[in-house]
Design a protein around this nucleic acid. Sequence first.
DNA 1: AGTTTGTGAATTGGATCCAATGTAACGAGA
DNA 2: TCTCGTTACATTGGATCCAATTCACAAACT
Lengths: 223, 223
Amino acid sequence: MTEILRNGTGLAQSSIIAAGVRDEILSGTRRPGERIGQQALAEQYGTSRLPVREALRMLESEGLVTVVSNAGARVSKLELDECVEIYRIREQLDPLLVSLAVPNYTDEDIARLTELERAVAMASNVEEFLSADRTFHVESYRAARSPILFETVERMWNTTQHYRRAYSHLVGDDGLGLNHLEHQLMLAAFRDRDASEARRLLYSHIRRTRRAFTRHPEIFQEA
Amino acid sequence: MTEILRNGTGLAQSSIIAAGVRDEILSGTRRPGERIGQQALAEQYGTSRLPVREALRMLESEGLVTVVSNAGARVSKLELDECVEIYRIREQLDPLLVSLAVPNYTDEDIARLTELERAVAMASNVEEFLSADRTFHVESYRAARSPILFETVERMWNTTQHYRRAYSHLVGDDGLGLNHLEHQLMLAAFRDRDASEARRLLYSHIRRTRRAFTRHPEIFQEA
DNA sequence: AGTTTGTGAATTGGATCCAATGTAACGAGA
DNA sequence: TCTCGTTACATTGGATCCAATTCACAAACT
């Protein structure tokens, strides 16, 4: 009965550690190729190395970490080809997800999404933009109530996060204008409850980003 | 230098165990909802429970196993809604994958795929059919050389394997005729190197299966 | 007779300890 | 001075041991 921070329903320490490392990778604290020591992680979270190892296996299955036997774990790196492949997947799945969500939108949903898009447009630095952009899209997917599809999309989003950041830093504010226009068109389709139009717009949105990556292969160069 | 069965490049015991359990789940030896004891697995593979736990975490991330804290691991069950969701994903990804493969087909590839389809048509029982059908599709994807997309598709395939088996047992030979016709049309598109036609045909192929599931919700009833 | 509660065993989660592999620094030789 | 080989160290992989939680069975109570 002591109000000790209980692990909730089945939240083992390995899950907590995995979530922490995941956040650190997504936030850019840990960069691709960087080594992840078990001992260091164990000390950081005040546990033994055992839950750490399970956490690393979980992250490996998510594609965020690459484990080599007897050589340790590293943050996964992506080649341009692989990033393009993932974006091809997203070109298919994100539009499907949004097309499932649009019919379920309430007026409140659309008002909230409009506000979230304002936050994207008003972002004053790269980190703010990345965070707001992700929130906008994630929230636009919520009404689909398709947890498996959502998780699959989120996984694709996560593994490419670092390169989206690198691209944003590279181009600065250029291209944000197009991004804003596409978001506005999507919001219009949302208001019309036009699922197929929202689907096409999101497809183009992601496709354009994919082609932008192809124009900037230097992002994927070895450090 | 001793030719001891080396673990190859990074094949830890946890990966071996995970592969074994994965096979047992896919082959139907372990049924959805069935408990997976750590101790039993450890004895089966002659190791301690430690690699077993890592293996279960990996399978959990793949969606094949559901782990509840302090309550053990079980083979994942799927509701009809979830299975439909996964098939909606496959409707998008499998066609993309085949459309990437078709342009790369050699004449030998097409000859081999024709043979593999004959094996599907000649399958004399459910297990043979499932195995041959999977081989045909997997081989048709190989030329795409898109490992990430392939792995994603394979994951979707794996989590729904049990229900495909249940459906096949339920309907027997009915519907196999349509399956064969669709495969023949796909082969024709392959020979023409008509990627967009192959894509549409595979979309219809998977969509039809999804709708068949919806007509047989009894497959997903509690045992 | 059905429900509930308590006690027991079985199973899971975690920590410490030991072996094996990979890495790196150091030294010797060309 | 550069290269190669050897040795020492750090890190990972695995096994055994201990604590905590859950589940099952049985007994008692309503």
